[in-house]
Design a protein around this nucleic acid. Sequence first.
DNA 1: CGGGCCTCCTGGTAGC
DNA 2: TGCTACCAGGAGGCCC
Length: 263
Amino acid sequence: MPELPDVASFEAYLNRAAIPHTVARLSVSDERILDDGLTAQGLGRRLKKARLSETRRHGKYLLVHAGNSGWLALHFGMTGYPRFYDAGDDPPGHTRLRLDFTDGSHLAIVWQRMLGDVAFAETPGELAEAKDLGPDALDDGVDADRFAAMYTGRKGMVKPALMDQSTVAGIGNVYADEILFQAGVHPKRACNDLGEKAWRTMHRVMRRVLRTASRRRSEGKRLPSGYLLRARETDGQCPNGHGDLEKTKVSGRATWLCSRCQA
DNA sequence: CGGGCCTCCTGGTAGC
DNA sequence: TGCTACCAGGAGGCCC
């Protein structure tokens, strides 16, 4: 699940539920979830007594400011999510990282599969560098000019390019499909087959889709009708009336599209 | 060097 | 019912 809009909703959730809180201690139930070089003990040293005061998001990473020591960085992989719960309640299943707060409440980070990452960085910029992340997809600094310049003339297919986190961070398999559907571009189109104008359109569509989805997810609402993703979860019909959506694979990933709408 | 394929993980589900 | 095969919203690595 967790792509940019989902992580944005996690960020809103943390700000409603868990910020600010002060960490009394933490528990790591499976160290495989920790970034290379990070240990439960080391993380504990950095987080103990830290006041979680602020959050940021960069692409699919959620960063939580932990006092003076730096930023806890959470990457949710395919199955992760945070869950705040009250003193005395049981943690959800598959809780791999648990923060116990001084008031007795808890924040669990849940991963069913171990495809996720807990990291720690001095600054958000340091994390982006360590993880080779491009600018966030909703960063205002990524305007249409800059966006088009990054993709126009590039080799390879459009969909994997949009999913490349080192170019622009935040778009995953699902929202790439939505953006391409709304932009009317086939996922297997070559990047260098699209002109600058098409990439500027892609930029506009990308921002609208990611902002709309972030807001809806944060409010617990469904995506608007007319969205491919909503059709995919319901009747599987093209929102523009072209019948069954197609399901195929692009660079190994499940891909939904309408070949009448997307060329 | 772009694209296909494999692997890491775990669990749900379709199919036999 | 029981077992297997495949699939899932991420990402890195390898090979041709």
